[in-house]
Nucleic acid binder design. Structure first.
Lengths: 329, 329
DNA sequence: CTACATACTGCAAGCGATTGCCGCAATACC
DNA sequence: GGTATTGCGGCAATCGCTTGCAGTATGTAG
C-alpha cells in the first residue's frame, strides 16, 4: 500500500540505490537525475520508511529523553531546551514520562535505547546500582543525578543554598525549616547537606520536616507542620512544595512575605506568578538540558573510551516577594 | 558488538526461527527448548532489536502523541492518562511537543507516524486543511479538535459555559468579560460561541478582550484591561490566563472572589492550588485521553473503512473561591 | 587512436528480526 | 503393525532501505 523506494525507482526507471542516494546523499548523483527522482518521489507521495532506514543505516536521528514527571513544572523548560537544541542539530527528541515510578526507569531506558541514538535521563529516581547498569548503553547522559562512570550534567546546590541562608539571616531570621523532598532523592540529599552546611556556617538553627513528594498537595500538608512550629522562614525542597505551602498558609491567615518567609527551589515558571511571588533558588534546567544534548551528540560522533564527561552547573538565589524581614519577636 | 538472535541461536544450537518463537510466541515451541533459549538469551544479555522487529513484523507497539505545549498544565494529565491506558494494553507512548508551532505539527506527525502504530494529536493548532492531510494516515485520532472525516474526541464547551454564566448571574453579575484565546484556536471559537450564546440566553452583557496566548504572562497583561473596564466577572480562555489575571489583580489590590469574580477553563491541577482557589470549567482531559487510546487501539485491531468514530465529552463547572456575589454598585 | 581518470549508476549483500510452509519424528488410533 | 495426526523445529523469503564495490560512459591526455 505505502509507496516504497522501489516504487520510485520503477517510476523513474532507475535503481533503488540511485533513488536512495538522490534522496539522502544528493552530492553523489547527477543533478539532473536527482531532480527527476525528487519530482517522482513527490508525485508518488513517497515517505521513507524510517524503520527500514534505521535498520540498515544503524542510526535513527532520534535522541531519547526520560523524565520522572512532566506534570512537574521543573521539567518542561528542560524538555523544551533539549528539543530546541537537538532540533538545531537535526535530531528529533522523544519523551517518556515514567510517572515517578523508579522501577520503570531502567526498563524503559533499555527499551527506548534500542530506538534512539542516545539517551538523556533527567533526575532519575532509581537507585545508583540500577542506574549503573544503564551506564553501559552509551551514549547516555544523566542530568541532575550523579552516576559514577557515566556522563553527567550536575547542578551544584551549594552556592544557591548558601545564598538563600545568607539572605534569610540578613533579614534577621534565626530559625528556619527545611522541607525535605523524597527520602531517596539524590537532589534532596544534595540540598539537605547544602543547607545543613550553610546553616552551620552561619549559625542559624535548622529544623527539618518531611519527606514530602514534589507536589503541591504535599506542600499543603507541610504548611500545617510549619504553622505549628516556631520558625520564621522555610526553604522547601522545590517550588511545588513551596507553592502548596504558601496557599495553605494564606488560607490560615499567615501572610507569607510578612509573617513568614518562604524560599523554593527550581525557580520554575510558576514562582514568578504566585502571589506573593516566590523567592527561589534558580536551577539552570535549560542550560543543563542543552549541555546534555551537546554531550550526547559529542559521544555519538566520536565514541571514545575515555572517562565520560561531567559538567557542573551552578545555582543562584532569585529574590522575590515571599521573603522579607523576620517579624519582630 | 550487540548480541543478536543469531548469536543466541548459535549458542543453543537451534535456528533463529526457533529462538524467535521461543521468545515471542512461547506456545509454539517445546517448553524445554523454550527454557533453554530463555536462559541462553539471558546469559548472553540478548535484547531484541526493536527496529528489526518492527521492520519485519510491521508493528511497533508504540503509539505516538503530539501535544502543542507540555508546559501548559492542561496537557500533563492528558498525557499521563494516555500513557496509563496504553501501558495497560502493552503499548508504549512517545510524546512530541511541537512547542506551539502549528507549522511543525503536520510534518512532525508525518515523520512520527512511520515509527508508531497509531497517532493521537491533542489540541492541534494547524489549519483544518492541513490537518485533513493527516486524516489519511490512519489510525489517527484528534483530541479536542474537530477534523472532518477523522476520528475525534471532542469536548463540548456549551454545558460548562452555560453553567458558568448561570452561576455568575445567580451571584448577581450583569456584565462580564471573556478573555479570548489564540485567534485561530478551534477551542477558542467553541468557547467564544458558547459564552456568547449563554450570555444572550441569560440576558447578560458581554465584552471581549484578547486574543491572548494560553500563558500566565498573557493573563497578567489581560488584568490591566479588565481593571480598566467595568465588568464584575471574567471568564478566561483557560486557567493559565485566569491565573495570571488573578496574580496581577492581587498586586493591584483587587480582591478576586470579592471585588471581582474569575472563572477559568480546564480545571487544571493549578486551579485548586491558587489563592483564592479558582472556579473553573472542568474539561475531562484524562477521559478524553483514555478514550483516544481506545479509539486508536480499536482502529489498529480492525481497520475498517467505515466513518471514523467521533466521541463527545461534556464539561461542567467546578465552583471554588474565585467567584462570589457581585459587589454592590 | 589508445590509455587512464572521472563521474554516475547498478548490483547485491546485508541490517536483525518474523513467519508461512515443509519435513521429520513421535504419538495416537484402529 | 501400518497409517493418520500432531508437535517441533528449520529453511528461506521478506520487510524497505543503505552502501561497498564494480561496471559503464564520458572526458582528457599522451
Amino acid at each position: 500500500m505505502p509507496v516504497t523506494l522501489a516504487d520510485v525507482a520503477q517510476a523513474t526507471g532507475l535503481s533503488a540505490s540511485t533513488v536512495s542516494r538522490a534522496l539522502s546523499d544528493p552530492d553523489k548523483v547527477n543533478p539532473h537525475t536527482r531532480d527527476r527522482v525528487r519530482r517522482a518521489a513527490r508525485e508518488l507521495g513517497y515517505v521513507p520508511n524510517q524503520t527500514a532506514r534505521s535498520l540498515s543505516s544503524g542510526h535513527h536521528d532520534i535522541i531519547g529523553l526520560i523524565v520522572p514527571d512532566i506534570a512537574n513544572p521543573f521539567f518542561p523548560p528542560i524538555i523544551k531546551a533539549i528539543q530546541a537544541r537537538a532540533g538545531l542539530k537535526g535530531k528529533t527528541v522523544i519523551i517518556t514520562d515514567v510517572d515517578e515510578h523508579p522501577g520503570d526507569e531502567v526498563q524503559r531506558a533499555q527499551v527506548i535505547r534500542k530506538r534512539v541514538d542516545g539517551l538523556i535521563m533527567v533526575s532519575p529516581r532509581a537507585s545508583e546500582e540500577r542506574l549503573h547498569e544503564l551506564a553501559h548503553l552509551n551514549p547516555i547522559v544523566f542530568v541532575n543525578r550523579q552516576v559514577a562512570g557515566a556522563a553527567n550534567v550536575l547542578v551544584d546546590n551549594a552556592d544557591g543554598m548558601a545564598e538563600a541562608v545568607e539572605h534569610l539571616t540578613a533579614l534577621g531570621h534565626r530559625k528556619l525549616a527545611y522541607l525535605n523532598g523524597p527520602r531517596r532523592s539524590w537532589s534532596n540529599t544534595q540540598r539537605r547537606e547544602a543547607i545543613v552546611a550553610a546553616c552551620a556556617a552561619q549559625g542559624v538553627e535548622l529544623v527539618e520536616y518531611g519527606p514530602f513528594e514534589p507536589q503541591i498537595q504535599a506542600g499543603v500538608r507541610a504548611a500545617d507542620l510549619v504553622y505549628a512550629s516556631e520558625v520564621t522562614a522555610v526553604i522547601a525542597y522545590d517550588d511545588l512544595i513551596a507553592l502548596g505551602l504558601m496557599t495553605r498558609l494564606a488560607e490560615r491567615g499567615v501572610r507569607v512575605g510578612h509573617d513568614l518567609s518562604v524560599i523554593g527551589i527550581d525557580d520554575s515558571p510558576m514562582s514568578g506568578m504566585a502571589y506573593p511571588t516566590l523567592t527561589s533558588i534558580h536551577v539552570p534546567g535549560a542550560e543543563a538540558g542543552m549541555t546534555a544534548v551537546d554531550l550526547v551528540l559529542g559521544m555519538i560522533e566520536n565514541p571514545s573510551d575515555e572517562e565520560p564527561p561531567v559538567v557542573q552547573l551552578e545555582t543562584r538565589l532569585v529574590v522575590r516577594g515571599s521573603t522579607a524581614l523576620a517579624p519582630a519577636t
